Amino acid sequence: MKVTTEIWGSIPLLHIHNEETKKDAPIVIFLHGFESAKEHNLHYAYQLVQHGCRVILPDAHLHGERDEKLDEVEISLRFWEIVLTSIEEVNALKQELEKRSYLTDQKIALAGTSMGGIATLGCLTIYPWIDAAAILMGTPGYVELAKAQIASVEQKGFKVPLSADERTNMFDTLSNFDASRHPDNLIKTPLFFWHGEKDLVVPYEPTAKFIASLRKQYDKQNIVLMNEKSAGHAVSRKGMLASMEWLANSLA
């Protein structure tokens, strides 16, 4: 497996392939989780490359090479800034793939863990070019999650530096990327969800309800939910292998 460190525009990333990867190989952009970094997710890339894919693994805003040494509270308060930046940068990465002649008419997918899965769902609400997506520990309800995060911070005794109007504006902005409010935009895309039922960071139940609603309202069959009853906020090896195999097969 070849792993090269590159900067596309202002985005540091790992470009992962091997000697057998074809120029027109299907492409996966993989988005890492909160307080993680690109190099911590190479095991996902390895599985995809073994299945014939080319993988782009960027550092998220304020993460990895883009770290600004923020403390836990400071970076937590900028969570949604990071998510929205990732959504914007996914499109920039697609344009770079086209400029570099890696993306012509083959398929392209997104995948992500936790914060990366949340960003992936946001991308699905606005980018029609995504051919498949794997969402690991992600949740579609941006507004619901943001309100829960603010309540959690305040319960711990911290003051959230947002006025009532600023909170309203924030929720209005997030609603534009909230997949639970724009389910029509996801109905044609094959989706794989993995989630632990004991996840205390990104709760399982909203995701399960969203998937059930998609299946019922749109008779959507091209959706997989792999839930593990004893798992918390960490993807199991079984989940990692199954999701990456599914994703690669969806792009074949």
Rank of each mutant, 00 (worst) to 15 (best):
F30M: 11
V55A: 07
S152L: 12
Y127T: 09
S250F: 01
V224N: 13
K22I: 01
D165G: 00
L241A: 10
R54K: 04
K198M: 02
L136W: 15
Y142W: 02
A37I: 01
V153I: 15
A37V: 06
T207P: 04
S114G: 02
I75F: 12
P12M: 13
F34P: 03
L31E: 05
A208Y: 08
K38Y: 01
G117S: 09
A92M: 13
K23A: 11
H40R: 15
S101G: 07
R167L: 15
E245D: 11
P206Y: 11
H233Y: 03
P26W: 08
K2P: 01
T4K: 11
S175L: 10
K159A: 13
A111I: 14
L31C: 11
E96I: 08
K156T: 10
G196I: 00
L247F: 05
V160E: 10
E88G: 02
G112E: 06
V202A: 00
L145S: 05
T104E: 11
N227H: 01
A234S: 11
Q95N: 14
E72R: 15
D105E: 13
L191Y: 05
V3A: 02
E245A: 07
Q149N: 14
D199H: 04
V143D: 07
V55Y: 08
E6R: 12
H63G: 11
L42Y: 00
D172V: 09
H43L: 03
V49Q: 07
Y46V: 02
D165K: 14
L162S: 07
A37E: 13
K198F: 01
T21D: 10
A60W: 05
A25M: 03
E74T: 09
W246N: 05
P203G: 04
H17G: 09
F30K: 04
F30Q: 10
A231G: 06
F158P: 00
W80A: 00
L77G: 04
W129C: 11
P140A: 13
K229V: 02
D71L: 14
P12I: 13
V160C: 15
T4M: 06
L186F: 07
L110I: 06
H43M: 05
A164D: 15
M115H: 02
V224T: 15
Y204C: 02
T113E: 03
K188E: 15
L110E: 03
G117D: 01
A208K: 14
F34T: 09
